[in-house]
Design a protein around this nucleic acid. Sequence first.
DNA 1: AGAAAGTGGAGAATATTCCTCCACTTGTAC
DNA 2: GTACAAGTGGAGGAATATTCTCCACTTTCT
Lengths: 185, 185
Amino acid sequence: MRSDAAKRRRLIVQEARRLFAAHGSDVALEAIADAAGVGIATLYRNFESRAALADEVALAILGDMRAAGADALKSVGSSPESAWTAYVQRLIELDLGALSATLAEFVTDQISGTVRQAQAETLAGVEALLDAVRPAGLVRSDLDALELVLAIGLITRPLPDAICAATPNLVPRLVSILLAGMRPA
Amino acid sequence: MRSDAAKRRRLIVQEARRLFAAHGSDVALEAIADAAGVGIATLYRNFESRAALADEVALAILGDMRAAGADALKSVGSSPESAWTAYVQRLIELDLGALSATLAEFVTDQISGTVRQAQAETLAGVEALLDAVRPAGLVRSDLDALELVLAIGLITRPLPDAICAATPNLVPRLVSILLAGMRPA
DNA sequence: AGAAAGTGGAGAATATTCCTCCACTTGTAC
DNA sequence: GTACAAGTGGAGGAATATTCTCCACTTTCT
């Protein structure tokens, strides 16, 4: 594969992720191509179908999630509290909305084995971090990984621009409420 | 207006509300007509545009919210805790998702004065309840009405069926986390 | 320089949604 | 019961959006 072609491919995935997160999983493929500054044909050459692109986006996000989890695990020993809040903060910024918007729709249909496995591994990683953080009294004992991920996914889903503009710091506020609510009673 | 026509009109609003909440604000108007068991022409005869229908849905929801607030205010004296949780529970069940899905999109554009006013009154009602509940130590002092409403709206937004089916009690769980997080630190 | 790899975007094909029209049905007043 | 006003359904044309192919052209790499 030519190096310029590889660069374009990465750009497509990146923009797809951004647009999925911002406007939902059914954005026009042409909009993605436009955002990436490539022709629609280039997108189709790289991804056989919308689902194939969505899979790639999902894999990218899941990979980032695992990386965030690994980093947090490393620093949990020195400062559990800041490791935990930084981790959640980082999850928020991962465009998880794109995950919940696209993956959810393909998960049940024809999900590729690769994605399913990545998803399972990622959840296991989240669970591991939760276990590491729990002794510090930062999270309820009954909170599980799936719940955490879905909660963050839900509050970071595509939001009408009107609301975004009117209440710019809504998400941080909600996150702080969520974090507080996740502490042991 | 003939009585059967009035019944059909109510049915249309009801189904629109349900479908807006379940599938977002851009469901086909024909889907709404179908759900209500009427022809598409009947829908168009009653509502000049999608926006008009959305306004009517919004008014219905806002009305229900005020009613819930009034009821909660009545019982807050005898048992603040149960009044508060019952109120939040009731908000959850109001298809607020339909509000955030439709209203948000029209709010900034060409929102009718009626809706805007109903919205303001509703928010005032929520604020009043918050004030009434605060002395009992159930909510942070810095939590405002808009935040509460948006938080509930966000977590009750249309969710892919796949997720709904896989995690049926996700919403109640999140609500309990939210409620806990809203208590004073 | 030349071959292989890659590109863009016009446009045909398809799908979806909107919305009007009118022959027909239903409620109601008498 | 009958007659008329009120109301109805849904076919179907117009408008719009999205998908996806094709091929003349451009770029990379040796």
